[in-house]
Design a protein around this nucleic acid. Structure first.
Lengths: 181, 181
DNA sequence: CAGAGTATGTAGCACTCGCTACAAAAATAG
DNA sequence: CTATTTTTGTAGCGAGTGCTACATACTCTG
């Protein structure tokens, strides 16, 4: 017998949409390809979400949730000894090929947030807040100021990731002082 | 008599196109609005540039040139005394309202570069390289490692600007250690 | 001035966009 | 089972997309 209908809904649709957006981008996403990736029609996307804007907004929210869950799942076993070690470990994780689609999408979210597109700002804020919290939990146990250190490392990380994104890997690598942090 | 025809060409077109893109964004730019902003028709844009892709590429190159010239025009009179002073001065300049359209566009360029869109990467690379060079020239005169310091400050700056772009101004401000740099 | 090349306007093509009207099927309620 | 509501398919609308065909002007060369 043919596959039974999976009874689609926002909840079943969003993961499929997210997966499509992670590989194909967010800015150029249009209803018909999105629908095809989710096994439906544009007609049904509008039916479930009302219009494209709220679809994107809810999709961004969903993606922020995925990201948050991914961070939760990536808690290191033992705490790093130094801030530098923490930085390097987190950067290694963020540079992992598996995370690359996420990074590519991330800059699109930043761009949308900077331009004030609806939904982007909230998603970006949530993802940064989560990352900050997570980073704070990953700081060395004896760090005198974990919250401040997390903010500092986050700033360095994002600057480094951006330089990587635009092909300045060398600048990014040499931008981190050999000692200090 | 009516205004004489200014004899359009790539060179006369690009500044008008750049101005339109700076306020209206790059991703959603389409030929007809671009042409209208430049006082022409889509027909003529294709005539001069061949197709949209090379138009965007040349436009990005032109915008990188504008940015470079703006940096050249913004050389401080006297050198800062410390790296921190240098950082704060440069950040103040980058946060100036006048520069905001540039910053909004910048993240769009980063996103395009991360996604591998043609032309974006080269423009982003050029702008970062220019900024790095400029920053190096703005470092304190007695800095032991101006090139390394410039890379470090650039990393911090871009991380901070990104946090600003997504509404984490507080995180951005507190992400810079009170002493050290 | 004749002819050649360059520049520009008009109209339109094939396509995609977000979205809707209409109707039929499917599930649910009584 | 009947009646109502929820879910889905088909078809299409009006607008916008990049781009082209064709014809016309303009400008320069001989």
């Amino acid at each position: 017998m043919p596959a039974a209908k999976p009874k689609m809904s926002k909840e079943t649709l969003l993961p499929l949409l997210a997966s499509h957006v992670l590989t194909n981008g967010l800015g150029g996403a249009s209803l018909r390809p999105l629908a095809k990736a989710a096994g439906t029609s544009d007609r049904m996307l509008i039916y479930h979400f009302g219009n494209k804007e709220t679809l994107i907004t809810e999709l961004l929210d969903h993606i922020a949730g995925i990201y948050s869950a991914a961070l939760d799942a990536a808690i290191g076993a033992e705490r790093p000894k130094t801030r530098r070690e923490c930085f390097e470990r987190v950067m290694a994780q963020g540079s992992h090929p598996m995370m690359q689609p996420f990074m590519v999408l991330w800059w699109e979210i930043v761009a949308g947030s900077a331009r004030g597109l609806p939904g982007y700002r909230d998603a970006a804020e949530a993802m940064i807040a989560k990352q900050l919290l997570w980073l704070e939990g990953q700081m060395p146990a004896d760090d005198p100021d974990p919250a401040g250190g997390a903010r500092y490392l986050l700033t360095l990380m994002e600057g480094t990731l951006m330089l990587n994104a635009v092909g300045h890997e060398v600048t990014a690598r040499d931008g981190i002082p050999a000692s200090g942090l």
